[in-house]
Write a protein that binds this DNA or RNA. Structure first.
Lengths: 209, 209
DNA sequence: CAATATCTGTTATTTTTTTCACAACTATCT
DNA sequence: AGATAGTTGTGAAAAAAATAACAGATATTG
């Protein structure tokens, strides 16, 4: 592939994009690689290298223009076009996420919510259209939903994934503690508090890094 | 350091530990590196390599004994001794986490909850002791809390971190969208849905991996 | 009980990622 | 305008991690 950016770099650039959005709001209009590094807890070298993967020089010698750099990253990583997403599982976590209004301003439109409990679907006050879980494949396909946030109990997770895949989903953020299996071309990231606590615990013990 | 395990390996071993716990419940008592790899979506080579960092041979040639391996990992990564943790911010996410009862069975004891709203602290039904936020330094020190789950709004995050650090916290799982800064020796992992969505989005676009 | 198939543990190799070094550029101050 | 201090971009070097290869061990099957 021509434009092959290392995965760690993609993650850091995503974080950088977030930082730049903040800086824009604070009306900061220029920042150096060192300042970025301090804020993001990475080296200035890495910051510059990551930006260099985008193959479009900013004015060398001067600090980065916040707006210009933000737009370069948006263009390179396709943050410009907004993507449709859905929330599966409307328990406490799912409800909190679906009612978090700021997604759209970050380029993600939550266009559907699903739950296996029809009662919840009918009574929950939400601005988003809600459907029973068996309709996942149909709605995902119909509304061209690319991303899903999965917040169902452990036991239900795999079934939901299968339904999402059936509808043609491309990526899943998994809040359940289940270990999901699926095709290679569907990207899944796991968000598991217990796992995070464990990793922290291990890093504290081993003093790694 | 003598026992230096690469950070990616620590993360994978944590996931493996979780898998082994599941297998134990399902009464599976042996598993091969290939089967582990399939489940965790990594190569069998990597699995064996990761385990080899623990410097204690299992019976070579035979498959891994679930119980034995689980205990080896627990011993090596210090999962055996339980750690005390707290939840800061008792909004929807924080409440969901503090009421999630299974932490203790995974070696984490949630021994305190904090919120700046005294009303919430007094009225919220929870099994855990709740305190107003200004008491964080005192309680963290007193109860020897090592880990914190931070689920407060953006604006309040940094103040809470400073208070936690004052109390001697060692690690923080950050659910807020704030970019936190602190001493190098305190480990922070960020859990940000928007960031995860962005990374997924970029990976879908670039077709990386 | 021998033969075969299947495993693990670990060294060696390859690939990926980070770090370094420095030329070239920009802004600022006198 | 010259000098100085600070900055980026990037090819090269170093470090880290993933992958492969295989020796040595263990089950299993006929």
């Amino acid at each position: 592939m021509i434009n092959s950016i290392p995965e760690p770099a993609i993650k850091r650039l995503s974080a950088l994009y977030q930082l730049l959005c903040r800086l824009e709001v604070s009306e900061v209009n220029a920042i150096s690689s060192r300042e970025i590094g301090d804020r993001l807890d990475i080296s200035a070298h890495t910051v510059r290298k990551d930006i260099s993967y985008l193959r479009e020089s900013q004015t060398s010698g001067a600090r980065y223009t916040v707006l210009k750099l933000k737009e370069l990253i948006a263009r390179s990583l396709n943050f410009a076009t907004s993507r449709k997403a859905c929330v599966v599982g409307l328990g406490k976590i799912g409800t909190a996420i679906i009612n978090y209004s700021r997604f759209s301003s970050y380029g993600f439109d939550i266009v559907a919510g699903f739950d296996s409990n029809v009662n919840i679907v009918e009574t929950l006050p939400a601005e988003t259209d809600l459907f029973p879980s068996y309709m996942i494949p149909e709605i995902v396909k119909e509304r061209e939903i690319e991303l899903a946030i999965l917040a169902v109990p452990f036991e239900a997770a795999q079934l939901c994934v299968d339904r999402l895949v059936k509808g043609g989903i491309k990526g899943i953020v998994n809040f359940s503690s289940a270990l999901l299996t699926t095709d290679k071309n569907i990207v899944i990231t796991d968000v598991d508090v217990t796992k995070e606590l464990r990793v922290l615990s291990a890093m504290i013990s081993l003093g790694s890094k």
